[in-house]
């Protein structure tokens, strides 16, 4: 494992920690899209099915279990915690699951490396992860006064994707058989979705103002 991959994973892990910190410390999930969180849970469950039949490393297994467990925990807070659930912007979080899940499923059935149940689900998870941030980005556009923890959460997620791309470039030149065009294209699409966000994020940071995305 190279340093870029590790930094990407740590950024991903940190993003989850920031989100859990926000929810637990402020007892609020204001500005957080439950749709995005549930899509991520679906991404993790479909991708990490291989926990049951393929072992890569202890590091990988621990991270997979951690991502599934934290995703479930976040959803439980947002849906069932008496205090937290009252802060959920339900009326604003209107993105339809079907618009994202259905095309990803069709694409995974058509474009995959092997037509097996687990491989199609894995491919589906790659496509779905690429677009799962969309409900969160839409919600942030609608929300005035995005708080710092929410902004940092999304920034860390974007950093994770960017670092994975650097990791792929590194692996492309150091591992002769490393060719994963399907993952790369999805990853580039996913990272591109953050471009707009990062433009306004750095601008707000430079001017020391609150992040606000133009509608």
């Amino acid at each position: 494992m190279n340093l870029f991959r590790l930094a990407g994973d740590m950024s991903h892990l940190l993003s989850v920690c920031v989100l859990l910190l926000k929810i637990r410390a402020t007892k609020s999930c204001r500005g957080i899209s439950l749709k995005t969180q549930e899509l991520y849970a679906l991404v993790f469950v479909t991708r990490y099915l291989d926990l049951f039949y393929s072992y890569i490393s202890l590091y990988n297994s621990i991270m997979k279990v951690t991502f599934i467990a934290t995703a479930v925990s976040i959803i439980r807070y947002m849906r069932f915690d008496k205090v937290v659930k009252q802060t959920y912007d339900k009326e604003q979080d209107t993105f339809r699951y079907a618009f994202l899940v259905a095309p990803c499923l069709v694409l995974a059935l058509v474009l995959n490396h092997r037509f097996t149940f687990t491989e199609v689900l894995w491919t589906f998870s790659i496509y779905l992860e690429a677009v799962a941030i969309l409900p969160q980005l839409v919600l942030m556009q609608r929300t005035q006064n995005i708080d710092n923890l929410t902004a940092n959460y999304v920034a860390l997620l974007g950093a994770y994707r960017g670092l994975y791309i650097v990791n792929w470039i590194y692996r492309y030149f150091t591992e002769p058989h490393y060719r994963q065009w399907l993952v790369w294209i999805s990853g580039v699409v996913q990272t591109a979705l953050y471009a707009d966000f990062f433009y306004f994020y750095t601008k707000a940071w430079k001017h020391n103002t609150r992040l606000q995305l133009p509608a």
């Binding site: 994973d9 991903h12 991708r47 393929s54 490396h113 491989e119 994975y164």
Partner: peptide, 10 residues
């Protein structure tokens, strides 16, 4: 490709 894809990333 013919090579089995190894999913070693997260």
């Amino acid at each position: 490709g013919g090579k089995k894809e190894e999913h070693d990333e997260l």
